[in-house]
Design a protein around this nucleic acid. Structure first.
Length: 833
DNA sequence: GCAAGGTC
């Protein structure tokens, strides 16, 4: 029997299909798919199935000095036991094996891990095949010409594993122990996360240090016949055009001159055409950027792409390649889209071109092809809105890469008005080219009429604008990922996770991300004592060392020993500073939770957590001072920079996913509640007739509002009300519940919201809530939720109780298996609650 | 329970 091992199940299935001419059958062993045909068996791993770690005696952080980890043994243990067992069982029966993991460094290491697991069982011959896309030609070619594993390349990967573990674990433990943070809130550092964090912290430092300068800009309208166009004042200095005027006196003088001008004479007219090349094929980084321009976070972009890949609609989404492989036939792929209701027209117009030559990017790698549609087209109704949006983006991006360049015509007019130079830049898209199939980039034009040199134009509406130079902007998530890619830190598969990790560790918040005080303290501590860990140069050095291993110039031991020595030296430095470092970290963490000073005793007011797990604001002087303020019971609080002018307390924001909101100053909220009387609107439906309870609009000290019984706490009947807006009790009445209709006005601009009867409103709300819970399940989306509702599935409870196959028969485009996945997810979230 | 890298 011949055993074939791939990096993932998906690859195993497709390779089995190709090599078996579609005759392979699927079996399960220990819950793992095994594809078989004739005497062949093909099994997919799940990336690394073994991991590096320290021996168990190093497991307890308190029992081990972090510095001891530097010289500790490192062992490999199975992390995916079912897969490891399956691989071993199969290799026991095999008489030869072929490693077909991905064609990159990590793939070679994963291949070597499989090799070692097989070797524990048997000494059969083990070969290695390499191909960069799973297409008929490439796969057959690779299997026809097998090679050997490249043990040096795998060793380069192992060096990385060891160095990352040593530095990451030892320094993470040191910082966490020094600050006394041993629970889930440990303080982490690492070769990739810490330089990324430093990027964010450094930008924040620039922003803090920035001192704005005043400047002025002047504009006027020029008129040709009835057409007015805007022109900007500038001066020529050292052969350059300067639009900004840096002192007020000069600006006022120029403005007066410009105001005095009735006419301007056209000094020059310059036309030029600019070619606007279509984009290069999608690698992961470019894809994430494009997805962010349609509003998806990096995380979301990757999870949606993963879904589309697994479903077979797009190619593998983790790739560094921006050059399509020879195997890709653009015409054949375009032809797949002819006849499609949405894509047909564009596909046909592209096919009509004389020759179709795709664009190429700078990176040509062996890992996977650039991301492109497979040609299998999903049903619109089977995808969620996000999935469809991403699918269309990938299709249109592929279209763009085989489309023509666009052509712009630029027109620059310079005129002299009373000694003031004015310029106007027009642009017109003369040939839309790829923009016709790719609507994701701006094609905004700026119209400037065709004037001639020497022509006289009227000048109108001279304006002066006082401005200030702006600090550099914070980078958004996709910009950070691009920057990481440029610096060579992280990989296509991990960069978005690294950002998520920084959020999870309490190092960054909001989007674009800004660093917490803890993050600044971690970066400062690292800069002082372990500069390497926050320097992207560590990765550059590691890459060089890995290359030396690949080239046979160094071996694994040399590289890791050198790294151990450096880390050792760092720990010698750190030894005496442990107290100081810990103190600084603790102070910063406290500062992140501090709102200001206690109005009763002057100590710090902090966000704290009660034993029941709810958050509140409490005094650091507890138990001597018992001053507290409540916080909303929804979400995780973070403290904002913004400060309440009345109480000098920082505002609080509650992070709760989509329903994140700014709570503001907790003292204001609390006082507002105390100063607001309950407004009775009717009889309590639960206890009214018996005990005389009344329903009233109440404002709570934690900022929420509700309609509740005046006999609270004896009667707990309550209905929620929106957090924002003025609530007005109107003349309208609900006959069913004998309650007035309520009207909510939020700001002057928005239309008031007719909330109606609060009981009816709450019933409606519950129904919508149930539907949106369904929509939130991965891969459901609005369309599908609607169809499910039509089939009687309106809530998570309905879904969990449903017979999957019966529902699948009712709902077009949804399989029983898909439903069972959703049920599993619904069960899991119910269990988590 | 630490990292970063695979994959789900």
């Amino acid at each position: 029997m011949e055993l074939i091992v791939t990096e993932k199940d998906n690859a195993a299935r497709r390779i089995a299909e190709i090599l078996s001419d579609d005759t392979a059958s699927t079996g399960r062993r220990n819950g793992v798919n095994v594809y078989r045909w004739g005497e062949k068996r093909c099994v997919g791993l799940s990336g690394h199935v073994v991991g590096v770690d320290f021996p168990p005696e190093y497991a307890d952080w308190r029992d081990v000095q972090p510095a001891e980890l530097v010289e500790a043994d490192i062992v490999k243990t199975p992390t995916q036991e079912n897969i490891v067992r399956t691989l071993k069982e199969l290799s026991g029966r095999a008489d030869r094996a072929t490693i077909a993991t991905d064609y990159d460094r990590e793939g070679e290491l994963i291949g070597k891990e499989a090799y070692e697991l097989i070797r524990e069982e048997t000494d059969i011959p083990i070969e290695r095949v390499r191909f960069s896309s799973i297409t008929e030609n490439e796969v057959r070619e690779a299997f026809g010409n097998p090679d050997d594993l490249d043990f040096d390349l795998a060793a380069a990967g192992e060096a990385r594993q060891i160095i990352d573990l040593l530095w990451g674990a030892a320094l993470t433990r040191f910082l966490s122990l020094s600050a006394g943070q041993l629970g889930e809130d440990f303080i982490s550092v690492g070769r990739v996360q810490s330089p990324t964090l430093k990027l964010i912290v450094d930008r924040e430092r620039e922003i803090q240090a920035f001192e704005p300068d005043d400047y002025w800009e002047l504009f006027a309208d020029l008129l040709q016949a009835d057409t007015a166009f805007e022109a900007q004042y500038f001066r020529r200095e050292d052969g350059k055009e300067k639009e900004r005027v840096w002192n007020e006196a000069d600006a006022t003088e120029a403005f007066e001159r410009l105001q005095g001008a009735r006419e301007a004479i056209v000094e020059s007219v310059r036309r030029r055409t600019r070619t606007d090349e279509p984009p290069a094929p999608f690698d992961t980084t470019r894809y994430i950027s494009a997805a962010s321009s349609v509003g998806l976070s990096a995380q979301k972009a990757m999870s949606v792409a993963e879904e589309l890949y697994t479903a077979g609609y797009i190619t593998y989404p983790r790739t560094d390649n921006t050059v399509y492989p020879d195997d890709l036939d653009p015409e054949a792929l375009l032809s797949e889209f002819t006849g499609h209701y949405l894509f047909s027209e564009d596909a046909e117009s592209l096919l009509a071109a004389e020759d179709i030559e795709p664009t190429e990017g700078d990176e040509e790698t062996t890992d996977h092809p650039p991301i492109h549609p497979t040609g299998e087209i999903p049903d619109r109704d089977g995808l969620s809105d996000d999935e469809w949006e991403v699918y269309e983006l990938v299709v249109r991006h592929f279209f763009a890469t085989v489309a023509d360049a666009a052509e712009w015509e630029h027109l620059k007019v310079v005129a002299d008005a009373n000694g003031c130079l004015l310029k106007s830049n027009g642009k017109r898209l003369v040939d839309p080219g790829y923009h016709e199939v790719y609507p994701y980039r701006s094609t905004a034009e700026n119209h400037v009429p065709a004037v001639e040199e020497g022509e006289l134009l009227d000048v109108e509406d001279a304006r002066i604008e006082a401005k200030q130079t702006q600090p550099p902007r914070r980078r958004g998530q996709s910009r950070l990922i691009e920057e990481m890619a440029d610096l060579g830190i992280g990989t296509k598969s991990t960069r978005h996770n690294t950002l998520q990790k920084l959020y999870d560790r309490g190092y960054i918040e909001s989007d674009p991300p800004r660093p917490t005080k803890l993050a600044v303290a971690v970066v400062e501590a690292a800069e002082k004592f372990a500069d390497r860990i926050v320097d992207e140069g560590m990765t550059a050095q590691l890459e060089a060392d890995m290359q030396a291993i690949v080239d046979g110039e160094k071996d694994l031991e040399e590289v890791t020993d050198e790294s151990r020595e450096m880390l050792e030296a760092i720990f010698e430095e750190l030894h005496d500073s442990r107290e100081a470092v810990g103190e600084h970290l603790r102070e910063s963490m406290k500062a992140d939770r501090t709102l200001g000073s206690c109005p009763e005793c002057g100590e710090s007011l902090l966000v704290r957590r009660s034993r029941q797990g709810s958050y509140f604001v409490g005094c650091d002087g507890f138990p001597e001072c018992r001053y507290t303020l409540p916080l909303p019971n929804q979400g995780e609080p973070t403290v904002l920079e913004e400060t309440c002018s009345e109480h000098d307390l920082r505002h609080v924001k509650m992070l709760a996913g989509r329903s994140t909101f700014v709570h503001g100053c907790p003292q204001c909220k609390s006082e507002e509640a105390d100063d607001t009387d309950d407004e009775v609107i009717g009889v309590c439906p639960e206890c009214g007739t018996e005990h005389g309870g009344e329903l009233a609009i109440k404002r709570l000290r934690n900022g929420s509002r509700l309609v509740g019984c005046t006999r609270y706490p004896e009667c707990e009947y309550s209905l929620p009300l929106p957090r924002r807006g003025d609530i007005e009790v109107t003349e309208g009445r609900c006959e069913e519940h004998d309650l007035p209709h309520l009207l909510v006005t939020d700001g002057a601009d928005d239309d008031p919201w007719d909330l109606g009867c609060p009981i009816c409103n709450y019933a409606d709300y519950r129904e919508r809530q149930a539907a949106s819970e369904i929509e939130d399940l991965d891969g459901v989306g609005a369309k599908t939720a609607e169809k499910l509702a039509a089939a009687g599935i309106e809530s998570i409870e309905d879904l969990r109780a449903a017979d999957a196959d019966a529902v699948a028969d009712d709902v077009q485009g949804v399989s029983g298996d898909r439903l069972r996945e959703w049920q599993a997810a619904a069960n899991a979230s119910a269990a988590a609650d």
